[in-house]
């Protein structure tokens, strides 16, 4: 099992993801510079958080034209696992690997805080180690994490069990008060149709050691490692 962490100009959570895989799990992991065009040696590609290309134009909009993204799109279409965290999620929706869009938080503020997440899907390769309705404590840090999609897309996501995580309160109740950014259906993470691509705004790599306040992100990586 070999992981690749893509590094765009402006990525800043690349080392966090690398660290978790290398130091916490001791699995093979390599950085992939955004100009690289060969990805066949990897099993999982991570698009990390940060501000690729300074978030110019729209978050993720410029990164989708990076040379590496053509390969990431192909890699995903061939069934490879792709995990986009925060800015990585923004890139995945811009690149059409996931539906919808991530717009400015409804209160216009950058939010950096712990949130609670309800696990909705436990069948995917990313979430199979969790139990349905598990409540996770994982941090967010973003300005544009307000998930938007048209009604028919939202229905499709629900019907096809493609909502991976929803924002909830500590009791696991999905409610407006627990929604940190205005996301439709409190969506914090979604899967593509084939369920080999996951995009999520919260940072599981920042919740992978007790020292950091939570280990609830660990099972996501464990699910992938197998």
């Amino acid at each position: 099992m070999k992981f690749g962490v893509v590094v765009f100009p402006g990525s800043n959570c690349d080392y966090d993801a690398y660290y978790v895989l290398k130091k916490v799990f001791n699995v093979q992991v390599e950085y992939i510079w955004h100009k690289e065009t060969k990805l066949r040696r990897f099993d999982v590609i991570i698009l990390p958080g940060g501000f690729s290309y300074g978030d110019y134009l729209r978050a993720g909009a410029v990164a989708k034209f990076s040379p590496v993204m053509k390969e990431v799109i192909q890699f995903a279409k061939n069934g490879g696992s792709v995990l986009g965290i925060c800015n990585g999620f923004q890139i995945l929706v811009e690149a059409d690997l996931l539906p919808g869009a991530l717009i400015t938080n409804n209160h216009l503020q950058f939010r950096c805080q712990d949130v609670f997440l309800k696990v909705k899907n436990t069948e995917s390769r990313f979430t199979k180690n969790y139990n349905k309705e598990d409540v996770l404590k994982i941090p967010i840090a973003h300005h544009s994490g307000n998930y938007f999609a048209e009604e028919h897309i939202l229905k499709e996501l629900e019907d096809e069990d493609r909502i991976a995580f929803q924002y909830c309160n500590s009791k696991g109740e999905v409610c407006d008060e627990a929604n940190p950014n205005g996301s439709k259906l409190n969506i914090a993470g979604i899967l593509n149709k084939e369920k080999n691509v996951l995009g999520m705004m919260p940072h599981p790599e920042r919740a992978a050691e007790e020292l950091l306040g939570s280990e609830h992100g660990l099972e996501l990586f464990k699910s992938l490692i197998g």
Binding site: R58, A61, V62, V93, G100, A101, F148
Partner: peptide, 8 residues
């Protein structure tokens, strides 16, 4: 392709 996001 770039300047606008047709979803929003």
């Amino acid at each position: 392709k770039l300047l606008s996001n047709p979803v929003i």
